[in-house]
Amino acid sequence: MAIGMSELKKGLKIEIDGVPYRIVEYQHVKPGKGAAFVRAKIKSFLDGKVIEKTFHAGDKCEEPNLVEKTMQYLYHDGEMFQFMDTETYEQIALSDDQVGDVAKWMLDGTNVQILFHNNKAISVDVPQIVELKIIETAPNFKGDTSSGGKKPATLETGAVVQIPFHVLEGEVIRVNTETAEYVEKVK
């Protein structure tokens, strides 16, 4: 189905020249002379790059063939990340480039959302909040307050986040994966 200029809006998924994009920002421009147009910033699902694109009245773009599946992260075999479809038990392997920075939030057994474009995996999304164990951090010092500063902590996946002084090594914390920030200690 073709998408016209008037149907464009923030968050809409479109396909241009075989590449799927998401509209992250758009502005309808009506100049004093000439026809109206839409200036949009679009983000590629394939490489994450944001580009600016202008759409005029007759321009059409396609709706991409995107499917999102819940899959379980199994393990990293040294070269590839192995995932299993939770419904069909079918396995796929993705490279470090395909998985990207979200790898630092994945433990074996974590359920993730994998986006497929024309039956080819293009991106991996982890849950917004994950629970991870602290494996290394500085000890608690006398005089530290729970509302005071922060210290770095290495988590079991290798990710490093800033945590309050009162949180200790061996404890499990919740982390926001979008901002890489400490949320709370798991009780």
Rank of each mutant, 00 (worst) to 15 (best):
M1R: 14
I3C: 10
I3S: 10
G4R: 15
E7D: 11
L8Q: 05
L8E: 03
K10Q: 14
L12Q: 10
K13I: 06
K13R: 14
K13E: 14
I14H: 12
I16H: 00
G18N: 05
V19R: 03
I23S: 03
I23P: 06
V24K: 15
V24G: 13
E25I: 05
Y26Q: 11
Q27P: 00
H28C: 01
P31R: 02
G34T: 11
A36R: 02
A36P: 06
V38Y: 08
V38H: 07
I42W: 12
K43P: 00
F45R: 07
G48Q: 10
G48F: 09
G48V: 12
I51N: 08
E52S: 13
K53N: 04
K53A: 01
F55Y: 05
F55M: 00
F55C: 03
A57V: 07
A57E: 10
D59L: 06
D59H: 12
C61H: 02
C61I: 12
E62M: 13
L66T: 09
E68W: 00
K69R: 15
T70A: 08
T70Y: 06
Q72G: 02
Y73G: 03
H76F: 15
H76L: 07
D77K: 06
G78C: 02
F81D: 14
F81C: 12
Q82W: 12
T86H: 08
Y89I: 01
I92F: 13
I92T: 09
A93S: 15
D96L: 15
D97M: 12
V99Y: 05
D101Q: 04
V102S: 04
G109K: 00
N111A: 06
I114C: 06
H117A: 02
H117G: 01
N118W: 08
K120V: 15
K120W: 05
K120E: 15
A121G: 00
S123Q: 11
D125A: 13
V126S: 00
Q128M: 07
I129G: 03
I129W: 05
V130W: 07
I135C: 05
E136M: 15
T137F: 11
N140T: 13
F141P: 02
G143Q: 05
S146G: 14
S147Q: 10
G148P: 04
K151C: 02
K151E: 03
P152A: 02
T154I: 11
T154Q: 13
E156K: 06
G158Y: 15
V160N: 11
V161H: 06
I163G: 04
F165N: 15
F165L: 12
H166D: 09
V167L: 09
E169D: 13
E171M: 10
V172A: 08
T179H: 03
A180R: 09
E181Q: 15
Y182A: 03
E184H: 03
